[in-house]
Each structure stands twice: as structure tokens, then as C-alpha cells.
Design a protein around this nucleic acid. Structure first.
Lengths: 256, 256
DNA sequence: CCGACTTTGTGCATACGTTCACAAGCGGTA
DNA sequence: TACCGCTTGTGAACGTATGCACAAAGTCGG
């Protein structure tokens, strides 16, 4: 559980100037948590928060894994990236685990959010209670429609997208959410980037071009539907094959 | 490029009854496309549709990869799962590629959608033009609130969630979208499953329990935000490390 | 018809993520 | 204190996904 990377070989650690490797090493450690594990940690955190509210103080990897819908070995490995805070023979202290996951996910700082594009989806996002309650206060709303400007949505007034750069910089927005039509998305993205926003959550069905230092995640509803469609088709094919081979829909063998 | 799986060894193909292997083989072929590739195929499809509208008839892997934000080798490998429909020295015929990807993704059939939970998000989804235009007509809406029952949203009347089972079965809904509060999600899911819905897109922040024959995909906004938060934190750490090691924010070396 | 040039499709090596299986460590009990 | 049973943490094996680099296969100009 102790991180042993960099104990061997070239680790000389000159007091004056550490070797070039060491920079990479430290970066490595920060990068060391796999992307997939980060996503799951967020899920564990939600489950654990629920447990804590119900008065649960201790939980085993088996229980937590069940509640999070993963297998327990994966869960333990994921938690090992965070550090070893379990007690063998007992399990994990819920409170302790929550605070360590929050630290790793950077949730100890508040991350102000700006939502751009106050259509149906933008409205929903602006009113979505899950953001502020989890440490992501919505600090600004933007739309291109002048009629919307000044009208408050979910308690926050809408500003014009021409003011994105100044207002986002001013209110220290760190996460931008793009809920505009696809044609407008890249232009909006560029403004957010020039305002210093480093992370973008994109709901528009376009591939955004951004500098290397900006992180983009996309949520594409049409893509999600099409993935489901693929699975429907695959299932239908399998069922057809089974019937051809004398196996019925529920695995029942036909004409045995 | 021809699919050579199953050409060797045990392929005897008795005219009366094919060997047990062959069932697995065919299943294998359907399953053979990696999940990650399926998600990208949906993106390629969108880009290609846009190209087709602009009158582009032929496209190279390099161009398409650029537009889709992936590297060209990965793109070609993804397309090879679909089949080899490119021309060496030239590229791919846009129309041909579109129709083959649509076939693989099962988009040749219509997939009716039911949205459950007509709150802010449900409203947005019911009105979202991206669904019907891509072959996913919204066939039913449901909510627990009796005041909403009968009121049309986006042209479709809202029904009560007690009627999910009968109405979904009746209208042959194949994809259910859950946009309810978390407490209601599992119960709604159970009803959808008992109506024969095989695929579910879940926006509620809970882990749904479903039978093996039902496919669930989840979109969790809080999780997306927390992943972004992690990256903000990681960047901040890296920047700090760089400064300590005499490298400034833009990679500029301090005091050289 | 031939040769130069372009672009695909894929074998191979590498990186990444998942799962298994078990030693190490801790609490409880006598 | 010494033992026993339980659960963590992790080394190692496995499987999947990614990227490189190049032969194969096509077009086009002469």
C-alpha cells in the first residue's frame, strides 16, 4: 500500500536540485489513478454518503461493492489508489473513507459552474439540485437571446454570451457547461477557455477543439441511445441464432 | 478484411445440425465489436451525416478521424469491425459507410422511447429534438403526479406511472429513460422491465438492479462534475510541482 | 500497360484495466 | 499471550484496447 514507485535505481535526490526523473515521478503519482477508477470513486462516494446518513459507521468491501454494483476486488483496488484506510478483519470507516475520497477528487475546494445555453436542457441544469448540494454552485448563466438576459432562472440571472469572458473570470468559474445548439458550441467553448475555464462538460453533439490544458467531457444523448440500440440488435441476433439452433428464448431447448 | 473467424478446425457444418461451436461463433461475431468502438461508431455516424449534408461523397480515414477527434489507426480498426468498405488509395464512400454503421448499430429499426419523470430534465428530454430525428420516437411519457396526467408535453400526453406496464407493452417501447428522483428510480425500473423494456437509460443517481437480459446505461451529472473536479485538482498539483522544480505555468523554466 | 503514389486493413507490441487468489494484519476469545 | 476467523491490500495472470508501422491494394498519369 505504500507507494514504492521511484525507490529504486536513479533516486539520488540531490539536496540542491532533484533529477529530472523525480518531476515525472510525482506527476506520475497524481496521474496514477486510472480514469475508470476515478469515475467509480465518485459512485462510491455517493453510496457512502447515503450510508453515513443512515447511521452506518463501518462497511466492508463486499457490502460497498454490492451497493455500488462492482466486484469487491475492483473496489479494494480502487480504494488502494486513494490510500489504505481500511482495517483488516473489520472493513472501512465510512466517515474516513468519505473524507479521503473527497480529498482525492478535489472536492475540498468549491468549483463554481457556468451554464451556457438556457433552453430546455439549460433550464433543467440550472435548476438541478444535485450540483450545489455536491459542492458545485452555479455561479452564472448565459444565453444568446437578449430577451432572456436579466431574467433569473433558478435564482440566478441570465447574462448574454458576449459577457462570458469577463463574468466567468470575475466569478472564478472553473467548470463550464455547454447546453447550446451544436452550431454555437465551439464559439462558446472558445470564450470559456479564454475566460480561464479549465474544464468543460459538453452536452452539444459536436467534437470540441480545445487547447491541451483544458479537459472536456461530453454527454451525448443520441450516442447513448445508439449504444442501447446496438445492444437491442445484438440481443435480437442472439435470440434468432438460438432459435435456429433449437434453443428457445429463455434458454429452453426446443425439441430435445 | 473478410471475416475469417471460424474458417479453421472444427468447421464441419453438418447439414443436419451444426456443431455447438458454431452457435458460440455467431454470438462471438455479434459480441466482437468492443463497447468502446460502438460508442465511437455513433460519433463517426454523426460526423458522416454532417459531411453527407454538405455534399461530401468520399472521405479518408485521416479526415474523418480528425473530425471525430480520434487517431486514424483507431478509426480504421473501428471501421474494420463493421466490414471493409473502403477503397485503398481513395478512402470511404460516405453514403456506404453511413448505411453500414446504421445497420450495425441496429438503427434500421425504429426504437420507441418512454420517458419517466416529467420534471425539469424529463421536460427537456421530451422536447429534445435529437431523439426523433435520429430514429428514436418518444412514444410515451409518465409521471407520478396526477396533475400532470393528460397534459401534453412536446405533443405527447403524460400518463400515470401505474400504467407503465400496459402502455409500454402496448406501444412496443424498447428503450426506457428514467428521469425521476433517486427514490423512485428502482420501482420505475422494475415496471419498465416487467413491460418488456430491454434497455434503460438512467439519469437518476442510483445503481439500478436489473435482470441479466436488460441493458442499463447511466448518465450521472454529479459524477461527471466530480471527474472534472479531479482533473482540476490534478492540474493544480502538477503546476505546484512544476513551480517547486523551477518550471513555470506554461512550461517556462524559472531561473535557468 | 506500367510505375509512382496514396490510403486502407491488420499483425504486432505495448499499455491499460480487471480479476484471481492469498499472505499479511487486525479484533475477539480463551 | 496465543490462537482463530475475518477482511484488507496487492502480486501476478489474464484479457482488452490502443498505436505503430507496413504490406496489400487500389487510383492516376504517362
Amino acid at each position: 500500500m505504500v507507494d514504492r514507485r521511484g525507490e529504486g535505481d536513479e533516486v539520488v535526490t540531490t539536496t540542491s536540485k532533484p533529477p529530472a526523473e523525480s518531476v515525472a515521478e510525482v506527476r506520475e503519482r497524481a496521474r496514477a489513478i486510472p480514469e475508470a477508477a476515478v469515475a467509480r470513486l465518485a459512485v462510491y462516494l455517493r453510496v457512502l454518503s447515503g450510508m453515513a446518513e443512515q447511521g452506518v459507521t463501518t462497511i466492508s468491501s463486499e457490502e460497498l461493492a454490492g451497493a455500488a454494483g462492482v466486484n469487491s476486488a475492483k473496489l479494494r483496488k480502487d480504494l488502494s489508489y486513494v490510500g489504505s484506510y481500511g482495517t483488516r478483519g473489520v472493513g472501512y470507516d465510512v466517515e474516513v473513507l468519505v473524507s479521503h475520497i473527497e480529498r482525492i477528487l478535489g472536492l475540498t475546494r468549491k468549483h463554481s459552474v457556468a451554464v451556457v445555453g438556457i433552453g430546455n436542457l439549460g433550464h433543467a441544469l440550472a435548476n438541478y439540485g444535485g450540483f450545489p448540494s455536491r459542492g458545485f454552485p452555479v455561479a452564472a448563466l448565459f444565453d444568446i437571446d437578449p430577451d432572456l438576459t436579466g431574467v433569473p432562472v433558478g435564482g440566478i440571472p441570465v447574462d448574454h454570451i458576449d459577457d462570458i469572458t469577463s463574468i466567468c473570470a470575475d466569478r472564478e468559474v472553473s467548470i463550464g457547461v455547454i447546453a447550446t445548439p451544436p452550431q454555437a458550441a465551439q464559439a462558446v467553448c472558445d470564450r470559456l477557455v479564454s475566460a480561464g475555464v479549465q474544464c468543460i462538460l459538453n452536452f452539444a453533439p459536436v467534437v470540441l477543439q480545445v487547447p491541451d490544458n483544458v479537459e472536456v467531457r461530453k454527454v451525448d444523448l443520441a450516442v447513448e441511445m445508439q449504444i442501447l440500440s446496438f445492444h437491442v440488435a445484438r440481443r435480437a441476433d442472439e435470440a434468432a441464432v438460438d432459435v435456429v439452433n433449437g434453443v428457445g428464448v429463455d434458454g429452453v431447448v426446443i425439441r430435445p
